[in-house]
C-alpha cells in the first residue's frame, strides 16, 4: 500500500473523531442558537420601537462588518483582559452564534416582509391576533422561502468552523494540524481534511435539494411566488 494511502487511513479515525466531537456540535449548536437569535433580531427590526431597532442594527453592522477570525480572537484572547475568561469551545460557540444570528436575521427579515400584506389581512379577518397570524400564517410561508438561503448559511458554517482551530478548539482542522506536526506530511493531511469538508458539504447540498423539492409540493406555491 502506498505510503500516502496508509497515512490517510491512519489519520481518518482521529479526524472523524474530531469532526464528530467538536465540528459537528459546534455547527449544530451555533446554528440552532444563531437561528433563534436571528429570528428575534429580525422581529425586532421589523416590529420593535426605534431605539431597540437601533441596537439590533448596530449588532448586525458590527458582525457583518468585521472578520469572523478577528471576532473569535477578540472573544477568546481579548476578553480575558477585562476578566472574562472562556474555554475555547464556549468562546467559539458564542462567536459563531453571533455570526449566524446576524446573517440569518437579514434573511429572516427579508422573507417575513416578502409574505404579501394580504396574508396578514386574511389572518386578521378570521379573527387571529398578531401572534396567531405570525405563527400560523406568516412564519410558515416565510420559512419555505427561507430554506434555500438558510441552507447556504448552514453549509458555509460547516466549513467556517475550521476557523475555531485558531482559538485552540480541537476540531477537524486542528486535528489535521496536530497530525502534521508529528508526521511532517502537510500536503496529504490537508488534502484529507479538505476531502472530508467536501464530502460533508456535498451531502448537505443534496439534502438541501431534496428539502426544497419536498417544500415545492404545495401546488407550486414557491414557484408561483418567486
Amino acid at each position: 500500500m502506498p505510503h500516502w494511502v496508509q497515512l490517510m487511513l491512519d489519520s481518518l479515525g482521529p479526524l472523524l473523531y474530531a469532526a464528530l466531537m467538536f465540528s459537528a456540535p459546534l455547527t449544530l449548536l451555533s446554528f440552532a442558537f444563531g437561528l433563534t437569535l436571528g429570528l428575534i433580531v429580525a422581529l425586532i427590526r421589523l416590529f420593535a420601537p426605534a431605539p431597540i431597532v437601533a441596537i439590533a442594527r448596530f449588532y448586525v453592522w458590527i458582525i457583518r462588518g468585521t472578520p469572523l477570525l478577528v471576532q473569535l480572537f477578540l472573544i477568546f484572547y481579548g476578553l480575558p483582559s477585562v476578566g472574562i475568561v472562556l474555554d475555547a469551545f464556549p468562546a467559539a460557540l458564542i462567536g459563531f452564534t453571533l455570526n449566524v444570528g446576524a446573517y440569518t436575521s437579514e434573511i429572516i427579515r427579508a422573507v417575513i416582509s416578502s409574505v404579501p400584506k394580504g396574508q396578514w389581512e386574511a389572518a386578521y379577518s378570521i379573527g387571529m391576533s398578531w401572534s396567531q397570524a405570525m405563527r400560523r400564517t406568516i412564519l410558515p410561508q416565510a420559512a419555505r422561502v427561507a430554506v434555500p438561503p438558510l441552507s447556504n448559511t448552514f453549509i458555509s458554517l460547516v466549513k467556517d468552523t475550521s476557523l475555531a482551530a485558531a482559538i485552540t478548539v480541537p476540531e477537524l482542522f486542528q486535528a489535521a494540524q496536530r497530525i502534521v506536526a508529528t508526521t511532517y506530511e502537510p500536503l496529504i493531511l490537508y488534502i484529507e481534511a479538505a476531502l472530508i469538508y467536501l464530502a460533508l458539504s456535498s451531502i448537505l447540498s443534496q439534502l438541501q435539494v431534496r428539502l426544497e423539492r419536498r417544500l415545492g409540493r404545495y401546488g407550486g406555491f414557491i414557484e408561483a411566488r418567486s
Binding site: 404579501p116 394580504g118 396574508q119 389581512e121 386574511a122 389572518a123 386578521y124 379577518s125 378570521i126 379573527g127 391576533s129 400564517t137 410558515p140 410561508q141 419555505r144 404545495y218 401546488g219 406555491f221 408561483a224 411566488r225
Partner: peptide
C-alpha cells in the same frame, strides 16, 4: 378591535387563501 372584528368575515378581491 378583535371583539368587533370577530363578528365579521371578509372575502377579498384576490382571495388570499393561505397557500400553505
Amino acid at each position: 378591535v378583535q371583539r368587533l372584528r370577530r363578528q365579521t368575515g371578509m372575502v377579498f378581491q384576490n382571495f388570499q387563501l393561505f397557500p400553505h
